[in-house]
Simulated scan of single mutants.
Amino acid sequence: MVLVKKTIAWAGLLTGCLILFSAFAPAYGAEVEATFAGGCFWCMEHPFNELEGVTATTVGYMGGHVEAPSYRQVASGKTGHAEVIQVTYDPEIVSYDRLLEVFWRNVDPVDAEGQFCDRGSQYRTAIFTYDEPQQQLATDSKAEVSDLLSQPIATEIVAASQFFPAEEYHQDYADKNPLLYRYYRFSCGRDRRLREVWGAIE
């Protein structure tokens, strides 16, 4: 009888542990999100899509005061939103630090007036963070970039707000319209300026 009681007790303890683990299991190894503003969102999507561990990217708008804005509204510069790329990733495969590296190397972080040929606050650079660890890592990386470039960094680090996906024709634009995308990227001077900022220290 004592053995039976001990067996039941151990079974109960094990069941409790399994229940507790299952409550936290979704958070472990689950996909998480990161959101970056780097000027034209067409040009920010492709670099992240190439990263192993990134499971999805969605272009859209964040940081403004208008509910569910349209592209035309955001492009006017009157909604307060920035064009952003929302990255869904598996932190077991790719780290947030690595995402930050990709972000920095694809923007001109010293430009406070926009990015490349796109001017205005809707094209500002920003890192939208979802929790304290992301905020700390972003802050540390910004300091490192400032030291590396020996210049003040214009990129904002702010808490993420509601994300509004852009219209469907903006999603995966580079894949859908490769010629137009390459022409836009070249004519906007994006790669030329990126080489000026980062080329000597790649």
Rank of each mutant, 00 (worst) to 15 (best):
P91V: 02
V84R: 08
H81S: 04
K78L: 15
A138Y: 10
S141N: 13
A82L: 10
K78D: 08
R119V: 06
S95A: 05
T129Y: 05
K78V: 07
Q134M: 13
D140N: 11
A138W: 05
D131S: 14
L100T: 00
Y130P: 01
V87D: 05
A75Q: 09
L149V: 13
L148A: 12
F103V: 01
S150R: 13
N106P: 03
D147G: 06
S150K: 10
I85M: 12
D118I: 02
S95I: 14
P91D: 06
S95F: 10
T139H: 15
Q136G: 14
V87H: 10
V94Q: 10
A82K: 04
D111V: 06
Q86T: 13
Y123Q: 01
Y123E: 03
H81D: 04
T88R: 08
S95W: 14
R105T: 08
D140H: 15
Q151R: 12
Y96N: 07
Q86N: 11
Q136K: 13
S76D: 10
L137E: 12
V145G: 02
I153P: 01
L100W: 00
A82D: 14
T79G: 08
P91F: 07
G114C: 03
R119F: 06
R98L: 08
P91Y: 07
S76N: 15
E83S: 12
F128S: 02
L100D: 00
V110D: 03
Q86F: 09
R119E: 15
V102E: 14
T79N: 13
E132G: 14
W104D: 00
F103K: 00
D140F: 14
Q86S: 12
P91C: 08
G120H: 01
E113Y: 11
A143L: 11
S146I: 06
I127Q: 02
D118W: 02
R119Q: 15
V87Q: 09
G80A: 06
H81F: 06
Y123K: 00
W104P: 00
D131I: 10
F103W: 05
N106S: 08
R124V: 04
F103Y: 07
Y89I: 04
Y96P: 03
D97E: 11
D90V: 08
F128T: 01
V102P: 01
F128H: 02
D90Q: 15
R119C: 11
T125K: 00
I93Y: 07
A82H: 06
D90K: 08
Q86I: 10
V107W: 01
D147H: 05
R119G: 08
E132P: 09
I85F: 14
V107N: 00
D97Q: 07
K142A: 10
R119H: 15
V107L: 11
E101C: 02
D90A: 08
L99Y: 06
G120D: 03
V102M: 07
R98V: 09
S150H: 15
S76E: 14
Y130G: 01
A138E: 14
P109Q: 03
G80C: 14
Q134G: 11
Q86H: 06
N106R: 02
V87K: 07
G120M: 02
V87E: 07
L100P: 00
H81M: 04
V107G: 00
S76P: 07
A75S: 12
C117T: 05
E92K: 15
D108F: 01
Y89E: 05
D147Q: 10
V94N: 12
G114E: 04
A82I: 11
I85T: 11
L100I: 02
E92A: 10
T88P: 14
A82R: 05
Q86L: 09
H81R: 05
D97V: 05
E83T: 13
H81V: 05
